[in-house]
């Protein structure tokens, strides 16, 4: 059974509507459906601004979807009472894309990582402290820096504080919104290995939002490609990377920078007119769907 099931998710934002301007709406997420199996890493990639973060936030109800359904272990998350939703957040956590904006600047790193344990009344003070120090070490931070405030860390260190916080409650499902984007390849390797190890040990399930396609290819079993609020292609990662079908997926894969100063690859530039808004997802190979 799928652990997380998203069906026909829609999120519209109203904007403008000031003194002189007419209000307008933006459809950030436009009829998105997918299911993630327990223990799976499901990748979500796509153009900047296409709705990846909004999709992740809707699943945890950090923004309220306009319509559609989200099921977690078969239960309708959107029907949860606020109290039930708070309890569910123990199981479902998110690592935010913007580490600076998501960490309270007045709290120390220790308080930030410990807070979810306090909210969910997990463990006595001493046990909590030990857990926090353990988490700090796990994500490759120096427990000697626990009393520092967020601004005293580097960008990549802040990102790992957010990860330690999300892992604190041993969730079963994690939305990872660009969890390693600020890390150099070596620390990134440590953190990604950690995530893969935890997944094996604890059967964690990940929604992995990322721009780094090499990394997505590395860690995700399946991947969905979003474009202008919609999933335009979804399937096994290997199949999509080997034979991308949608014009946007093709453009995306052709633009991956090559770590070789002499490499000059022909980049496919997407012609927006080539993307039909009337197309719908069709299965073009086993489990591989594309808008055609």
């Amino acid at each position: 059974m799928a652990l997380v099931e998203v069906s026909h998710l829609v999120k519209r934002f109203r904007r403008g509507g000031g003194l002189l301007r007419r209000p307008s709406t933006i459809t950030a997420v436009d009829d998105v459906s997918f299911a993630i199996d327990e223990g799976e890493t499901f990748g979500l990639v796509g153009e900047s601004g296409c709705g990846k973060t909004t999709t992740g936030r809707c699943i945890l109800r950090l923004v309220e979807p306009t319509s559609g359904a989200v099921r977690f272990r078969g239960e309708d998350v959107l029907a949860y009472s606020p109290k039930r939703m708070r309890a569910a957040r123990r199981q479902m956590q998110i690592v935010f894309q913007d580490p600076y904006g998501s960490l309270n600047p007045r709290m120390t790193a220790r308080q930030i990582v410990e807070e979810p344990l306090i909210i969910h009344r997990m463990g006595a003070r001493a046990a909590r402290r030990e857990r926090v120090a353990g988490l700090f070490g796990l994500v490759g931070l120096d427990p000697a820096h626990l009393e520092r405030h967020p601004h005293q860390f580097s960008g990549g260190q802040r990102q790992r504080i957010g990860l330690a916080r999300a892992l604190a409650l041993n969730p079963s499902f994690l939305v990872l919104d660009e969890p390693v984007s600020a890390l150099d390849v070596s620390v990134q390797a440590q953190v990604v290995n950690l995530l893969m190890d935890l997944q094996r040990q604890l059967t964690l399930t990940y929604l992995f939002i990322a721009h780094d396609l090499r990394l997505v290819e590395h860690v995700c079993s399946r991947v969905a490609v979003m474009y202008l609020g919609r999933i335009v292609e979804v399937g096994p990662t290997g199949a999509i990377f080997a034979a991308p079908r949608h014009p946007y997926t093709r453009a995306l894969l052709s633009a991956v920078p090559i770590p070789d100063p002499d490499a000059r690859r022909a980049r496919i530039v997407l012609d927006p007119a080539a993307v039909s808004r009337e197309a719908s997802l069709k299965e073009i190979a086993a489990g591989h769907w594309a808008e055609v």
Partner: peptide, 24 residues
């Protein structure tokens, strides 16, 4: 050299991290 060797290679396999961590 170690940095260049840490780039993702074979899908599904563990990434090559540099042992230890940067000294504070």
């Amino acid at each position: 050299r170690a940095l260049l060797a840490s780039m993702p290679g074979v899908p599904g396999q563990r990434l090559t991290a540099i042992d230890g961590s940067v000294p504070a």
